[in-house]
């Protein structure tokens, strides 16, 4: 904790710098348009007038941070949650697909890892393919999965969740294989002297010692799930969800809407990673390890 407190100052400084840079960039990018407008109208407004106008355009090239903040406030707090224009509603659509995909991906990853650790044939034949599977840009396949499943009559949550599953199973599988193999020879020998069965060794030694690896991978996996769910929403024709907000915003040139969806997605990602981190500390404390 002491280290985290020591880093707070520099992190805040960097965040402030990013904010200042953002304002400067917004001013620079949006002023051009204001200047053109003024020239066309034959006016010669002062720089401060132009600056304040540049900060409150309807469709700025780059919206200023406070515009995005106002938009998020308007679409979360001021709108009813059930409204189609509420960001809370859209976030929930994305979040539910993310969580379902994350759960399925974690389960698949753990099962694969258990199989790989216990069978040499699986280890030899499956492991290279698991790694190769990630060099395939799965997000490119997303539209096809959605459309094909739609044709079979499966639509809604599951197709999106499947894309999240594909993205999240990999870090879990790789991390768990490492984790389940982390007990050293001495510990494995100890289990053997107690004539423990494979199942007992698994539950009492392998699984507990894999927990740090599992949670480290879960943090990566949950972020990947969110990306999968957002991209999964793109090809369905922008119905609901944060991805749909991005697509609709890009169709109609609503830059503020795009940025607010983007910032919301980032907050969601940070919150999910933080939740997994909190679970990690809790589990480690329950197991008696120093967090």
């Amino acid at each position: 904790m002491r280290r985290a407190a020591g880093d707070a100052g520099p992190v805040l400084c960097v965040l402030m710098a990013i904010l200042v840079l953002w304002y400067a960039a917004a001013a620079a990018l949006n002023l051009q348009w204001e200047r053109d407008q003024a020239e066309r109208a034959g006016r010669a407004p002062s720089l401060t007038q132009m600056l304040s106008a540049a900060m409150s355009q309807d469709r700025p090239v780059l919206p200023a941070p406070h515009q995005v903040a106002v938009e998020i406030w308007k679409t979360t707090v001021d709108k009813k949650i059930t409204s189609k224009r509420s960001l809370v509603y859209h976030s929930w659509v994305t979040l539910s697909a993310t969580l379902l995909g994350f759960a399925m991906g974690t389960l698949l990853g753990v099962l694969l890892a258990v199989g790989i650790v216990h069978s040499r044939a699986l280890d030899l034949s499956l492991m290279p393919w698991i790694i190769a599977s990630q060099t395939i840009p799965i997000l490119a396949i997303a539209p096809m999965i959605i459309v094909v499943l739609n044709a079979v009559g499966i639509s809604g949550l599951l197709p999106k969740a499947l894309i999240s599953t594909y993205l999240s199973f990999f870090p879990v599988a790789v991390g768990m294989v490492k984790g389940l193999r982390s007990p050293d020879a001495m510990q494995m020998d100890q289990m053997r002297t107690w004539s423990a069965t494979t199942a007992q060794t698994f539950w009492k030694l392998r699984l507990p010692s894999s927990m740090p690896y599992l949670f480290a991978s879960l943090k990566v996996a949950v972020a990947a799930s969110l990306v999968g769910a957002i991209v999964g929403e793109l090809p369905t024709g922008a119905v609901a969800g944060l991805g749909a907000r991005l697509l609709a915003g890009s169709y109609y040139g609503q830059t503020i809407q795009i940025w607010s969806a983007l910032v919301t997605a980032s907050i969601l990602a940070a919150a999910l990673v933080a939740i997994v981190g909190a679970m990690h500390r809790r589990v480690l404390r329950r197991m008696g390890a120093a967090a």
Binding site: V227, L242, S250, S266, A270
Partner: peptide, 9 residues
């Protein structure tokens, strides 16, 4: 960890 793909539009 952020969904950077979103900057695409």
């Amino acid at each position: 960890a952020l969904p950077i793909v979103g900057v695409a539009p």
